[in-house]
């Protein structure tokens, strides 16, 4: 069963084709890595799938809903963590959890339980009453991820969630991703770290708005005669014409 299906999905900004006819399918529960150099069109593609950006042409079905007509339905069933940290810095940790839990319609009782559970898993119990903007980046990112999946969505979209985060916290972050995946949440993640690409079930690599390769990391490595994902990425990204 597929939770994301796209067919020649395209986004143009004026004369510039940011995303050029991409077609792929993502299965339920999968950890799907969405790779590409800066400017390859990853974020634009992801924003279309989240209902934040209206495609120019092509088709896309996310969580069973059409991105053109049913974007508000899609939003009930997805979580999203943008590249730029977007929780409220002037609210406390628990207040952010409460706000987004409330927006997604969690009951009062469930909210209280969820808050405790979340703070416990993130080891943030002591920071419950800290204003979010004063948290270190790694903690912020972990909190943002947990808030993004507070309503147990079918899919969570993560846009470079570990950018600028130290290796230990990155490791912990991926543990959170695996936990979510174990709870049958499909993870759609973009990253620039090739070691992280190895953690994904399948990986797609975008070059200049097109999906140039899509398979499991091991198949990709064989196809491109590379020792690791970095090699695969290098041989594909070299073809890019667009600069940064």
């Amino acid at each position: 069963m597929y939770v994301i299906e796209t067919d020649r999905l395209t986004k143009q900004f004026g004369n510039f084709t940011a995303v050029d006819q991409i077609s792929f399918k993502v299965s339920s529960g999968e950890i799907f890595g969405f790779l590409g150099a800066n400017g390859a069109g990853k974020t634009t593609a992801m924003r279309m799938l989240c209902g934040l950006s209206i495609p120019t042409s092509g088709k896309a079905i996310v969580a069973g809903f059409d991105v053109y007509k049913e974007s508000e339905q899609i939003k009930k069933h997805i979580g999203y963590m943008s590249q730029k940290f977007s929780l409220y810095g002037d609210l406390k940790v628990w207040e952010n959890i409460r706000l987004f839990g409330g927006i997604y319609g969690l009951s009062r009782k469930r909210l209280a339980d969820k808050t405790d559970e979340l703070l416990h898993t993130l080891d943030l119990e002591k920071e419950r009453n800290t204003l979010v903007h004063s948290l270190p980046l790694g903690w912020k990112q972990k909190l943002a991820f947990s808030v993004a999946i507070i309503h147990d969505p079918k899919i969570v979209f993560l846009d470079e969630p570990t950018g600028g985060v130290d290796p230990v916290t990155r490791r912990q972050f991926w543990e959170l991703i695996y936990e979510a995946s174990a709870r049958d949440i499909t993870v759609f993640v973009t990253t620039h770290y090739m070691d992280e690409a190895e953690y994904c079930n399948r990986v797609s690599i975008m070059v200049d708005g097109r999906v140039e390769a899509l398979d499991t990391p091991s198949v990709l490595k064989t196809t491109y005669h590379a020792d690791n994902m970095n090699g695969v990425f290098q041989s594909l990204a070299r073809k890019a014409i667009r600069g940064e």
Binding site: C50, G51, L52, E72, Q73, K75, K76, I78, Y80, S82, K84, F85, S86, L87, Y88, G89, F100, I103, Y104, V147
Partner: peptide, 14 residues
């Protein structure tokens, strides 16, 4: 400007 509206826009909030 802060980007917080993204998190609202991606939610089903009317």
């Amino acid at each position: 400007e802060k980007g917080t509206i993204e998190q609202i826009n991606v939610s089903p909030l009317p």
